[in-house]
Design a protein around this nucleic acid. Structure first.
Lengths: 204, 204
DNA sequence: CCGGGTATCTTGACAGTGTCAAGACAGTAT
DNA sequence: ATACTGTCTTGACACTGTCAAGATACCCGG
């Protein structure tokens, strides 16, 4: 054994996930084929099928990792003491998350899994947990207590997430936004939210 | 000739575009293969290559059709006499456009063309014309004259389009929005814009 | 210690994809 | 009529995900 090629890989499951993440980042979703992945892991074409049911299942696991990262990112930001500044920093952090690994973001939110593919039960749970955490921001102080009367926190959460998501997509797909504009546009987006929240009236 | 299979199709170019649109709508981008399309047009696998350089070129032509439709849709809405109501109707019209032919919208704005593929010069021109028309809305009355001082119309246009786009994507990819929520969420989005524009102050 | 049983990994094969190369046919202009 | 050009065809290649069968290594009860 030792250096020589072993029949059993040892820790293929983890290796596959790790190498898949690299391949995804460097080559994009289109470049992430099971065969290339297997070759990279030093294993035959069909070996991955003993650790993941499907290509779909592997991609779901990969996306799940992404959502966990996003979740920790959301926990770091403290909106309690500084609502407006915290919101602004969160928006920037979200966009940075999307633009630092665009292909991962695409996988997490794209149609590959949610529309064309079949999202794992596990992925669905983690993703929904992420949304819920965001929505909760609107239901708890300091935001909840400052919403204009009659404004539904759920709807506001959905609309503002949509803005974040739309900015990310336009940027990542390279449609009519580039990285240089991003700073200014995202600040504008925050201003829209703040105005909608009428949040600037008693805090900075 | 007449009923019997002719060697020359006659109008393959137009037929391909027409059938491709049908196939796209019914089967989605993933289901739109050149071979199936050729079969549907009653022609051999490689015949399309005499009318379109590439699969990419064909998809670009298809997306271009979509942008033309979107452009006429934008011209129909009259913001001059009724800014707020017109804006609300425009938002609904945009989302209806996206949800009536989701696969077309995906093709128009998705990564298939803009990131993975190479957008045709012609497609780029039409798409940018569409953006420009939208941006112009912010630079001309009645909107331009009512923007809060210091607000950049370009940034506002980009941010608000991002919101529209994000709503569409979340809805179409079936992530955490469904058609039933859409009405309420889009109204919320309009409210955000209006608040940002401080538009409700002198008109309804 | 040893014999099964099981998890893991392999090769072979199949249907599907986009695309290139070479040849067959039809219409058009000289 | 002859040459030319645009159109369409068949054949082939490399690539994909996935299934079926067989080979190998490990583990656990006897």
């Amino acid at each position: 054994m030792s250096q020589t090629a072993r029949y059993h890989h040892g820790d293929l499951h983890a290796t596959l996930l790790r190498e898949a993440a690299v391949l995804l980042r460097e080559q994009g979703i289109e470049g992430l084929s099971l065969r290339r992945l297997a070759e990279r892991a030093g294993v035959s074409r069909t070996a991955p099928y003993h650790h993941f049911e499907d290509k779909n299942a592997l991609l779901c696991a990969l996306a799940e990792q992404g959502f966990r990262k996003l979740e920790t990112l959301m926990e770091e930001e403290d909106l309690e003491t500084e609502p407006v500044g915290g919101l602004r920093r969160f928006v920037h952090a979200y966009l940075r998350f999307a633009s630092e690994d665009p292909e991962q973001y695409e996988l997490m939110f794209g149609r590959t899994l949610w529309k064309t593919g079949r999202p794992t039960e596990s992925l669905t749970r983690v993703a929904h947990g992420c949304f819920r955490r965001y929505i909760d921001l609107m239901y708890r102080p300091p935001l909840a207590t400052r919403l204009p009367p009659g404004m539904d926190p759920l709807r506001l959460a959905q609309a503002s997430w949509a803005t974040l998501h739309g900015l990310s997509r336009l940027l990542l797909d390279g449609i009519y936004l580039n990285q240089d504009d991003m700073e200014a546009v995202s600040d504008q987006a925050v201003d829209l939210m703040i105005a909608g929240l009428r949040l600037g009236e008693d805090a900075t």
